[in-house]
Design a protein around this nucleic acid. Structure first.
Lengths: 221, 221
DNA sequence: TAGATTGTTAATCGATTAACAATC
DNA sequence: TAGATTGTTAATCGATTAACAATC
């Protein structure tokens, strides 16, 4: 049964991985039913871990049969919150269209790019990632009017913390920090840091140490 | 003393975070000496964890004094492998200049963007991210001639796995997968997955569950 | 019924935290 | 010497793995 408290961070990451893989299966039309063994093998997790991950949230499978792909997708999307719409604003007029395109199959349903902010007067009103660029002065107004839930941060280091404070005052629900700069946020405020520097640093460590170690070479961030 | 085997993945990520924060301190010129307490508070880790992380690799501090920032930077860069040069190739002609600019302060020393590959004839020879675009047919040649260590993947899903196989045959040392698509690589091959889909999925989970939980809201990937 | 595969309990393994002697 | 802070040991906490009864 649900013990929705204190799920390991790693479990939530795995859930995202399952979700993506299951969607791929559904798109291909097969298999309709998947075992923990197959799903685990595909993604590099043990079958026990797969079952444990699902069992932590309920009984999603059928003994002797496996998990129905379509069921599992519904369950996981409910757990992760991908069964609702999330409106996103980008801070910093950076072209992400190619990156967004790669993520489209997963991202397009629950997420909607709704606003882009910049302080460059010459960019205002132009389209970027399919959205008109707004001036950063209108941050609070647009966030509230457009009901933005999530902000993706790609602004210069020096102005970022002030903007983050304004975002939080405006009632933003969560922040994805796409820069390597640390943000100060209230305790427990939902913040995910995703940046190239850390990814590359970690990769270098693994490259230099991969002969010696035995596992956990596949790192997700 | 060193027990270079089996360092927790989380520790390596924290090491990257320390490294970045210490570089900021050095750039500002102060403090020259930092305690585990201060460093931990700044980054949201406990002082015990900070000391444990360093002690796992050696004795970097002075009892009663703390850690010399400049020493610590050297130690960590040696551990992570940021004391050497890494040549990087990008697969998929995607403009990353803005994103690279954000990461510049950390990235610029150890990493060098050396090549960009694409299969679009019209793009060949043009500059992207400061480098001339090469045709993907020349992958093996360029990788070997330019001594590329790391590939960043931003190619379309359907062609990617073949390219990954070619990269590995060419002797690439590690791969940073910037797309949400799973790559098949040999056991223990250094691979880091870094993608927006997973970041956003995790963020959504944290947004919907942040009232109930107590800690670990700050997730790094 | 026999084979397959889940959900769960117990055992192991690993990481974090607390406490404190060592020492600058 | 007194105050500060490390490095390390022991205790706690948490996550993963192994094993197996339940059951489709």
């Amino acid at each position: 049964m649900k013990d929705k408290y204190a799920m390991p961070k790693a479990r939530i990451s795995r859930l995202s991985a399952y979700f993506h893989e299951l969607n791929r299966m559904q798109k291909e039309g097969r298999p309709k039913v998947v075992s923990s063994n197959l799903l685990g093998k595909t993604l590099g997790f043990s079958q026990t871990q797969v079952r444990k991950d699902f069992a932590a949230f309920g009984e999603f499978g059928k003994k002797g049969v496996g998990y129905f792909v379509s069921d599992l997708i519904l369950h996981i999307s409910r757990i992760l919150g991908l069964n609702q719409k999330w409106n996103i604003a980008l801070l910093g007029a950076v072209r992400l269209d190619k990156i967004l395109a790669h993520n489209r199959t997963i991202i397009d349903n629950p997420f909607k790019f709704q606003a882009v902010f910049d302080n460059d007067q010459t960019k205002l009103g132009k389209l970027l990632n399919g959205v008109e660029i707004s001036h950063i002065d209108n941050l609070e107004k647009v966030i509230q009017e457009q009901n933005i839930h999530i902000a993706i941060i790609l602004t210069p280091e020096l102005v970022t913390q002030k903007l983050v404070n304004r975002l939080i005052s405006s009632g933003i629900k969560g922040i994805l920090n796409y820069t390597p700069h640390r943000l100060q946020v209230p305790d427990n405020f939902p913040l995910v840091n995703l940046n190239l520097s850390m990814g590359l640093s970690n990769l270098c460590y693994y490259i230099r140490n991969c002969e010696e170690e035995t596992e956990s070479r596949l790192a997700d961030y």
